[in-house]
């Protein structure tokens, strides 16, 4: 007889906490778990659709069971049974603490300073964590036009800590963005037309010390130093530091690298696959479990 969700749930804590071997998971799974590791149990998280949401839902089962998730459309601490495809999905509103609207999320929660972690996507990023989700080329006559800010620039500047998930390519990791949608640790002061630290542009506001702390890509995990400059923290299994540097449009600081990104553990993979995305919406491919896990699951 097929196992019910409750039966499977009993198995979570029986799953080995040792890292899976390369080949036993796909890259988006590793990235989703890398996202989950950025979440703390006392965080109030404001996250975008896709891998950030999937990662944070995974963290809710494991390392951060009490992290509170805010969804952009007005949902506060929804307890989902089925993974949402949108931040306004009724699935995300299930058993929420309260339901409001955009004024609640951007005003009462975000501008008021309650959000401790923002987890967002981006099309391109600069070496100080400034993100472009708007356009490439001349703003009025772009060669590429993306969706534009959405909540990215609001969340990315007012959340206490900000993390991004971005596809890493040379043309997406830049010394300076052509258009900055969400400023990083350095940005323009348009009043004086000077490029300067965010702390100075935002001086006196409650958000002067907030900004990017981590970036997860398909090649590695990054953090930011005291000067606000990005550096490589870990590289994913199967990737070399040289490959990371080759896929970066500026001279990347690799002096602080800590080694490989840890592979997701079997327990983490089990939660991600069986409970967070069992409908195979976000992670449509699934690698088979190794034999010892199969026998545990039965």
């Amino acid at each position: 007889m097929a196992k019910t969700m409750e039966d499977l749930m009993e198995l979570i804590d029986k799953m080995p906490e040792e890292p899976a071997k390369p080949g036993e998971f796909i890259l988006p799974e590793l990235m989703a778990i890398a996202v989950a590791h950025q979440v703390r149990d006392d965080d109030i998280v404001f996250a975008g659709t896709g891998l950030p949401m999937v990662g944070i839902m995974t963290a809710n089962f494991l390392n951060a069971p009490h992290a509170l998730l805010i969804y952009e459309s007005g949902i506060c601490d929804g307890k989902t049974m089925h993974v949402p495809m949108s931040v306004c999905d009724q699935r995300a509103a299930n058993m929420s603490s309260s339901l409001g609207g955009l004024v609640d999320t951007f005003g009462y929660y975000l501008q008021q300073g309650f959000v401790s972690l923002g987890f967002l996507g981006g099309a391109a990023i600069d070496k100080y964590g400034g993100v472009n989700v708007t356009s490439i080329g001349d703003y009025f006559k772009p060669s590429h036009r993306f969706t534009g800010s959405g909540g990215n620039s609001d969340i990315g500047t007012m959340a206490r800590r900000v993390a991004y998930i971005i596809l890493q390519e040379k043309r997406r990791f830049l010394e300076r963005n052509e258009y900055t949608t969400t400023p990083g640790w350095w940005c323009w002061d348009f009043k004086k037309n000077e490029w300067k630290p965010k702390k100075e542009v935002w001086k006196g506001t409650p958000y002067a010390d907030s900004g990017p702390v981590a970036v997860v890509t398909n090649m590695g995990v990054y953090n930011f130093d005291d000067k606000g400059e990005i550096y490589l923290h870990t590289f994913h299994p199967g990737v070399t530091v040289q490959q990371v540097k080759d896929n970066c449009g500026f001279d990347l600081n690799v002096s602080r690298v800590k080694g490989e990104t840890p592979c997701p553990t079997y327990k983490e993979l089990f939660v991600l696959r069986e409970f967070v995305d069992p409908e195979l919406i976000f992670l449509p491919q699934k690698v088979e479990y190794p034999a010892k896990l199969k026998s545990l699951i039965g």
Partner: peptide, 30 residues
Amino acid sequence: YSHGAMAMRFLAGAIGAPFIPYNAPLGSDL
């Protein structure tokens, strides 16, 4: 604009205010 900014613009419109202050992202090309 940004999402929060559009929300605030509608809020201002709704309450009959001509404008609204908001900590919109300084340093953003927006």
